[in-house]
Design a protein around this nucleic acid. Structure first.
Lengths: 247, 247
DNA sequence: CTCTCGGTGCGCACACTGTACGCATCGTGG
DNA sequence: CCACGATGCGTACAGTGTGCGCACCGAGAG
């Protein structure tokens, strides 16, 4: 078997200098990673896979990115770039602005259900430029609404914590569906007996389950989200009234 | 090299039937997994490692657990078993009860900082017995407080989403510290210049950073948590007033 | 007492992961 | 024209989750 796989060194087989296309760049890598994550989920993202997707070898990526973890940090900030925060800072409409921002954060999180898994996977220092942009804008809204410097930050992390928590739970469910191939309706229907049985001895839980049954799950999730958001915004409004009252 | 590593078949070298100890059990595996996770974090948990910790081979674990994922589901529910929910259902004290429960959930999450990473890693169907127990108890409190059947569930997921979101962010930070070996104070001090630079062009952010500087970080995190929790509870109280008013 | 049988542990193997290292090749500035 | 830094890549290593089939045990049946 003298025929080896190594290319015969000849002018004709030698790779032509067609490498004039941009080759590889950090931005391109991150963007392709997002595409791959969206298409096939978090466990499909390996350096080799991402490499072949870019027409490159796995180890080439390391010229532009220190780690897989660093790559993931970049990916997270890239996604934060999709979050829309209203510019207008009319103090009277702070509630609408924050609400819009929260909704944007949620839909972004649901559009990329793998995001929350990355957020949990620690090591993310929250210093990416897009993340900073969002924080600064939201801060502007809250400050103009009347929250003092030290408190605006607490208010913002409360809202964000809520949105991330809620969206994370939804996203986990959605990516479970994506992996198993069920629709939301099918999954609930199939899980029903197990849930009923698990809720034995828990009358209140069963009752709560029964209320949810037959609702459109997408709408139910949305209403659930809005409910909690409204409670938080109510609470913040109350605090705002206290602040302006004591001044 | 005729000397192989395989044991000489003799009565003396043959393993004595000392296997009378319980050998392996699902509960033991889960408990040891938690111990390992607490001690060395999430990336130290491999089936082989867990096996040797139990004096067993990696593949033996699969007799008691279908998957690594299933093992993690069990681990999550095990941890939910540590969450304390007050029994007393005095309707007037619902706020204190929910608050206590939220604090318990938080300290549990901070005691096991790897938890939130698991929660994000989807595939967790929320049907574990301990999880159900907690939900049912909390539901009891909210129902007795005056929330109607369909709404109590929304209220509970709002609170839980907030706690998970906030705790998750804290836990990510804590496990980052654990991995790098810094104290909370040291980390902040060292990251300061980078944060200052990243917050350039974001005056409001810099101002907010400045306020936080010099605070005790542990206390600051706790106060931050309480702040948001109070806002949510205020919002729920408000809603409760609306409900009883319109009745 | 023997014989079978279901449950359990384990060695091996496979496909795959992140990434360190060193070589080959390129476009560019002196 | 030459040297050099930047870039891509082949190879290799240690480690991962897990399927497979064998070895063994204690218990129940004849």
């Amino acid at each position: 078997m003298p025929a080896k796989k190594q290319p015969i060194p000849s002018v004709w087989t030698r790779p032509r200098p067609q490498k004039q296309q941009p080759a590889l760049s950090r931005a391109q890598i991150v963007s392709e990673a997002v595409k791959l994550l969206d298409a096939e989920g978090i466990e499909a993202l390996s350096m080799r896979r991402l490499g072949t997707q870019l027409g490159a070898a796995a180890t080439s990526l390391y010229r532009h990115v220190a780690n897989k973890d660093e790559l993931l940090e970049l990916v997270v900030d890239e996604i934060y770039g999709e979050v829309a925060v209203p510019e207008a800072e009319d103090p009277a409409r702070w509630r609408a602005s924050i609400s819009a921002c929260a909704h944007s954060l949620r839909t972004t999180g649901l559009r990329h259900p793998w995001l929350t898994a990355l957020l949990g996977h620690a090591g993310l220092v929250y210093l990416g430029p897009n993340m900073m942009r969002v924080s600064d804008r939201v801060l502007a809204i809250l400050r103009s609404a009347g929250f003092p410097p030290g408190e605006a930050d607490q208010a913002i992390s409360s809202v964000i914590a809520y949105v991330i928590g809620m969206t994370g739970s939804e996203a986990a469910f959605l990516s479970l569906l994506a992996r198993t191939g069920y629709t939301e309706q099918e999954w609930i229907e199939q899980l029903w007996p197990a849930a009923e049985q698990a809720a034995q001895e828990h009358d209140r839980l069963r009752e709560e389950f029964a209320v949810q049954r037959g609702q459109d799950p997408v709408r139910a999730r949305e209403e659930n989200f809005v409910y909690g958001l409204d409670r938080i915004l109510d609470g913040l409004q109350l605090r705002l009234d206290q602040l302006s009252g004591s001044r």
